[in-house]
Design a protein around this nucleic acid. Structure first.
Lengths: 145, 145
DNA sequence: CGAATCGATAGGCTTACGCATATCATCTAC
DNA sequence: GTAGATGATATGCGTAAGCCTATCGATTCG
């Protein structure tokens, strides 16, 4: 095996400052990290239940309620009872929600591009490709079994 | 700009399960995450102060003391007053500490190799190379001042 | 219809962390 | 040698997270 630092160590070491760099950008948009993750998740596709949303972003389902309340109140998401099952709440982004999301994400990725600029072009492409491959896996697949 | 998920989002998404996979291995060796990080940091080179150690692993200097106490008591690290400045404690790994570290790290990297096996060989090399490049940066360099 | 289930929500508990302050010993500079 | 800096350590605070239980309305299935 090639001698290398632990994957987890390197990734955690990157994760912390990247998040620290995100937070100010999010705060400018009035978003917390959880709120931002909600917007990202809903942007990909609307969800039928809040539990599914919580699961998708790895949050506790009882803990995101406050964030959803806030996002709804600010008109960034829609949360309407499912007419076919009124226990569930249909969740989706509003136009304004998408606008805020886009704006926040642009700011974040601008910072990230500066970091990626440190990599040679080919490595950078392979790096992003690999990250996308791995990040698309379910947590169980990442752990291995 | 290429359309992609946020770096931070992908990396955080990987980070959590990787750490979850580490913890059981560490527990088998009687190590907490902080304790393991201490062993890793000291393996690279002994340190002259505990504050420097805390800084190196991104921990609070007042919070690692308990972990150091424990590691020392179990004979995994040496912590002796610096004869040239008796305020400071010289920190280094013992032989047993290195043995435990090696064993834990082997277990961790074995799991990680299974994950890396999902990447094509060239991407995998570029991925690791890139990670090492980026993880070697200081937090300030990662954020981008 | 009635029982079991499900989704949303509230509340409390525990743990961990970052941060700030305070103390004590030691060292360095003037 | 005295003042101020430095290092280790203890402690308390506020916050955020995971987890568990309880409630309540809505739904489904027997």
């Amino acid at each position: 095996m090639t001698d290398r630092p632990d994957l987890a160590a390197m990734i955690s070491r990157l994760s912390r400052p990247l998040i620290d760099a995100e937070l100010p950008v999010l705060r400018e948009h009035g978003l917390s990290m959880w709120a931002y993750m909600v917007l990202l998740a809903l942007d990909e596709r609307p969800l039928r239940t809040q539990a599914a949303l919580a699961e998708a972003i790895g949050a506790d389902k009882t803990r995101i309620i406050g964030f959803l309340d806030d996002l709804q109140q600010r008109g960034l998401i829609d949360r309407t009872p499912d007419p076919t099952d009124r226990r569930a709440r249909l969740l989706s982004l509003t136009a304004e929600g998408r606008r805020v999301r886009d704006s926040a994400q642009a700011g974040i990725q601008r910072k990230e591009e500066r970091l990626l600029g440190r990599l040679p072009e080919e490595d950078r492409r392979a790096f992003l490709r690999s990250l996308q491959t791995l990040a698309a896996l379910s947590p169980e697949e990442i752990v291995g079994e």
